[in-house]
Amino acid sequence: MANLRTGIAFSLIALCVVAAVFAPFLAPFDPFRGGADALLPPGSKSFILGSDHLGRDVLSELIFGARVSLAVGISAALSASVLGLVVGSLAGFFGGWVDGVLMRTSEFFQTLPRFVLALVIVAFFGSGIFKLIIVLAVLSWPPIARLVRAQILSLREATFVEAARLSGMGSLRIIAREILPNALAPVIVTGSLDIASAILLEASLSFFGLGDANLISWGGMLNVAQPYLRQAWWMAVFPGIAISLVVLSFNVLGDALNDALNPRLQETA
């Protein structure tokens, strides 16, 4: 049962990645070019998922939209993880005032309402995919930093770390070889969950018209679909389904990674 769920989630993510990478080859139409065939329902005139108010193919838009969602989600989560890892490690290893300053800073970022701040920043500095990624990363690192710090604090006291000191390893080597590998698993898990929330946040911003206007994104598709909800349900439903499935898949992937990265849960030989 769990394997089936993971399998489906993994396939959906793989599908999404393939769509994003090979979008120009896979899309049946040019998603940027409209035509006379506006607001056609799914199935008509080779528009498999219908066409939008400008006569663009919804399926092609979805395929191209995967690029933005994945790029934003993965880049934001990756940057947040790296930032969190660095900050958390510094705080955990050095302790004292370094720890105090870094943790107070992370608390400050955690108290900010993510969505509202994202709205303000984008409204102020203008939209654009890179700005969006930076905003998301800046807003997502604190939980990872705190997680890493907690891991390192407890691992620093672990008996096997003492044993490593007795075997003559230097501090840096102990950090790199004994502590970080054991601290990494929860970061990877949280990172994959962060991909999901970054995708969701990007979609929300685009839905409010604050996405990158030059790119097609699923959130942006929802935005333009608003006035046509009654005439053309397919304009909203398909991007909605895409967002939900991808977000769900990354969450399932996070769970699966959590299990897979725990050596104790692996089958004993």
């Binding site: 672990a158 008996t159 096997f160 003492e162 044993a163 490593a164 007795l166 075997s167 003559g168 390893m169 230097g170 080597r173 004994e178 590998p181 054991n182 050596p263 104790r264």
Partner: peptide, 21 residues
């Protein structure tokens, strides 16, 4: 179980002092 690094094989765990000490 706490005194051996759970992510490293038994051989690795024993080799550490040989390499460093």
């Amino acid at each position: 179980s706490a005194s051996l690094n759970p992510r490293r094989r038994i051989g690795d765990n024993v080799e550490s002092p040989l390499i460093f000490n």
